[in-house]
């Protein structure tokens, strides 16, 4: 507003007003930055405060009747199982997809193909959950029955297979589909940054394309791949709807093809809407555990990325 004054003599006042504008604006920007720090601390703080009653409660009052630890332990393991399955499937495919887009696909197609893979990330998680529960689960019934019959001696494939296909393995596969675009797009960025001169030098020495990738691209991208997988892990650990809709939950069991197991996020989503009193505090405590696990995973991933930045040959 101050600049609309065009009276020359008012210069001093105008400058003062401009200074105030500057102060207000930089103050607002600083406040917004501080707010973000505050929100993250608030997330931790409010979860801790609301979770506290759980830790003070008598063990018999906790779900399961044996204290908080024996309540949370099975679902932490369930969460880890689902995330592990997702990563075992999504990591090799994601890295290969990234390689395909960065080094194999024709240049003109590459961008469009990258966009197609990103579409996978745009589909809402509840739609994946519905797809997993209705289409994927029923089409996996047959393979599960076959596995139970022929590979049943391995504990993870112990039968009898679930009649609905709604098992932790199905949930893991759905999670893998959701994690895949994250790993693919992050590693693609890294592959595109791999120094061109090294790649051309390798090709000039007569290396085949695969040898070039092994010698000049993969070593450069190792840190990036690891951090992309860690970020994917963070997503897989916290993903709720895919598991809540797909898995018919139960106690912790070793077999992946029977209904059973449960993850933290799905447990919260299924039970929180009806929870009250101690049960609510319990679920918030479970959320706190999930928060710290994903926080740890994400921090390690970011730490790897930042360390990698310094050694990267890109500059």
């Amino acid at each position: 507003m101050s600049t609309t004054k065009l009276v020359p003599k008012a210069g001093a006042g105008q400058a003062a007003k401009g200074r105030i504008g500057d102060k207000v604006f930089s103050g607002a920007a600083l406040t917004a930055g501080a707010l973000i720090v505050a929100v993250l601390f608030a997330v931790a703080l409010f979860l801790i405060v609301q979770a506290l009653p759980t830790f003070g409660a008598a063990p018999a009052d906790i779900t399961g009747g044996e204290g908080f630890f024996s309540y949370i332990f099975p679902i932490v393991i369930g969460t880890l199982i689902a995330a592990t399955i997702a990563l075992l499937i999504a990591t090799p495919i994601g890295v290969a997809v990234a390689l395909f887009i960065s080094h194999y696909a024709p240049r003109k197609l590459a961008k469009g193909l990258g966009y197609v893979v990103d579409l996978l990330a745009a589909i809402p998680s509840v739609v994946y959950g519905a797809w997993g529960a209705s289409f994927l689960a029923s089409s996996l019934k047959g393979p599960y029955a076959w596995l139970a019959e022929n590979a049943g001696w391995i504990p993870i494939f112990a039968g009898p297979a679930s009649g609905t296909g709604k098992t932790i393995l199905t949930a893991g596969i759905v999670l893998a589909v959701m994690v895949l675009p994250i790993i693919a797009s992050l590693t693609r960025e890294i592959f595109l940054q791999a120094p061109m001169l090294h790649q051309e030098a390798a090709l000039a020495l007569g290396a085949t394309r695969w040898e070039m990738i092994r010698m000049a691209v993969l070593p450069f991208a190792r840190g990036g791949i690891i951090s992309a997988v860690m970020l994917g892990l963070g997503r897989a650990l916290g993903e709720t709807m895919a598991v809540a809709l797909v898995l018919s939950s139960g106690p912790l069991i070793a077999s992946l093809i029977r209904s059973g197991n449960q993850t933290i996020a799905a447990e919260i989503a299924l039970d929180f809407p009806e929870a009250f009193g101690l049960r609510m505090h319990e679920l918030i405590a479970a959320g706190l555990v999930l928060f710290f696990i994903t926080l740890l995973v994400n921090m390690v991933a970011r730490w790897i990325i930042n360390r990698h930045k310094e050694f990267s040959g890109a500059n």
Binding site: F46, G238, L290, T294, R302
Partner: peptide, 16 residues
């Protein structure tokens, strides 16, 4: 780090 907060935890935070 905030990018990686599970969505359900964000919901729990607001609820709490």
């Amino acid at each position: 780090v905030m990018t990686g907060i599970p969505s359900i935890v964000a919901g729990l935070f607001a609820a709490a």
